[in-house]
Design a protein around this nucleic acid. Structure first.
Lengths: 249, 249
DNA sequence: GATGTCAGAATGTTAGGACAAAGATTTGAC
DNA sequence: GTCAAATCTTTGTCCTAACATTCTGACATC
């Protein structure tokens, strides 16, 4: 009954590292789970034994386990112990992964910049970006391809002050270009909807006239709550859909 | 300089309550933030002073503050202190709120059950629900209205063993009915897309022929990772869109 | 006047201990 | 044999204490 007995993990801690001990522990256990050394349902040692064996205090061991509970990888019950959570329950939180999930799914993303213009913003956009009404706004329109096939038409607007240059934009993605300027997106609000393609959109996206499009409107903010960017994206519904994993509470 | 001085919050702790002290503290501070007593950017006392004043240990105070940091309501910096986060950065994580956000937005949701049938499931659905291939499956088709106007057509399939009765379903929502049977949805995987309405869908939803529909396919799981329910929903894109708030990392 | 150094202030990490609460198991009474 | 009480195991809460790290600002130096 190997699934019934607690598993003794081999964990090496580097006490001279600046990485906290609890995080080293958490990463080591996480790795054991991902490699399958710890199967779903497997019981871990109790925290006192674990702490004793690794020569750390119980709070340190607890914090490591807690970190994994919050990631959904472990489940703990009083009087029972700590078990590895079932696979499906442990996906990480839906991050602001933009388009580059394409690369992750083995497709090759490319981009064509259709427009890069600077000018005064409409009242709507200066309001959304929380900049003065007379401030200059950069408008970027890009066509995104996957394996050479058009997939999405994206219009983004940013304050001129933080906007990447045309060259930066073509070489990196928008968010990657912003990151080189130390602008990090921390949070975004999105609205996802659908509508029929206009004639121009259908032509650009190589879709049939009046095809269904998936639309996404996003405003991104940095950690201080300042608006960074507003985007209106339309995707070919025949080729693309959003996948998310949601958690209760 | 009231925004420069640390704010002394009045916090009452009930030490005879079964609610942990750190959680009582966190809730009290959260309330102060929500009522505006603590404005965004306001500095809190340092954790040692806070702990001393409330007669709790520093770890307890830290844990309370940490809870609020994870909710995005506080920002802490070493050598600086603890500040209230800007408003927009602190929305809670997108929960599995299903349709009942309608009620929250002031519209009146009603439901008409179009179909409630029991029978053997297709291989696809028994596979998704992880039940034996010859198991019986309940199929429910419902039409959802907001303020009397059709909004969505939802088809849900569940194992017969856990399926609510017809009566339960009409009185409560699907998830509420499941909850009365102690079945809690913990996680769901969703795919959101778009397509053109079929003639039948357009008629039922009172849309124009070939209107754009927003589609959502969802499989819901309980905390143990068991599949509970699979649903295929189509929404009138002219009347409905999904709103989400995403966080990096 | 610009720059480097240092002290103070605040949070971050880690230790070790005591007791409480909840679930599982064993024991005991009937 | 069955049910309830007692016990054990395990995690949850809370405490005190010490040291490390980082940011800020003041001071001194060049």
């Amino acid at each position: 009954m190997s699934s019934d007995t607690a598993r003794m993990l081999r964990i090496d801690l580097d006490r001279s590292s600046p990485v906290p001990l609890y995080h080293q522990m958490a990463k080591a256990i996480e790795k054991s789970i991902e490699t399958g050394e710890l199967a779903p349902g497997a019981r871990l040692e109790n925290e006192i034994a674990l702490a004793g064996r690794l020569r750390v205090s119980r709070p340190t061991a607890r914090r490591a386990l807690q970190e994994l509970v919050e990631l959904g990888m472990l489940v703990r019950k009083r009087g029972v112990g700590t078990q590895v959570a079932p696979v499906r329950v442990r996906r990480k939180v839906d991050l602001t992964s933009l388009f580059d999930d394409l690369a992750g799914s083995g497709r090759t993303p490319t981009t064509k910049v259709l427009e890069y213009s600077v000018g005064p913003g409409t009242p709507e956009i200066t309001d959304l970006l929380e900049i003065p009404a007379d401030a200059e706004v950069v408008t970027v329109r890009r066509l995104r391809f996957a394996d050479g096939e058009p997939l999405a038409l994206m219009t983004n607007q940013l304050s001129l002050e933080i906007a990447p240059t045309y060259d930066e934009l073509t070489e990196l993605g928008l968010y990657a270009a912003l990151r080189t300027r130390a602008i990090e997106v921390h949070m975004a609000q999105q609205h996802i909807g659908a509508r029929i393609a206009t004639a121009a959109e259908a032509r650009i996206l190589e879709e049939k006239p009046k095809a269904a499009l998936l639309t996404m409107e996003r405003t991104a903010y940095d950690a201080a709550g300042r608006a960074i960017e507003h985007g209106v994206h339309v995707y070919r519904a025949s080729r693309y859909s959003f996948s998310t994993t949601l958690f209760a509470q």
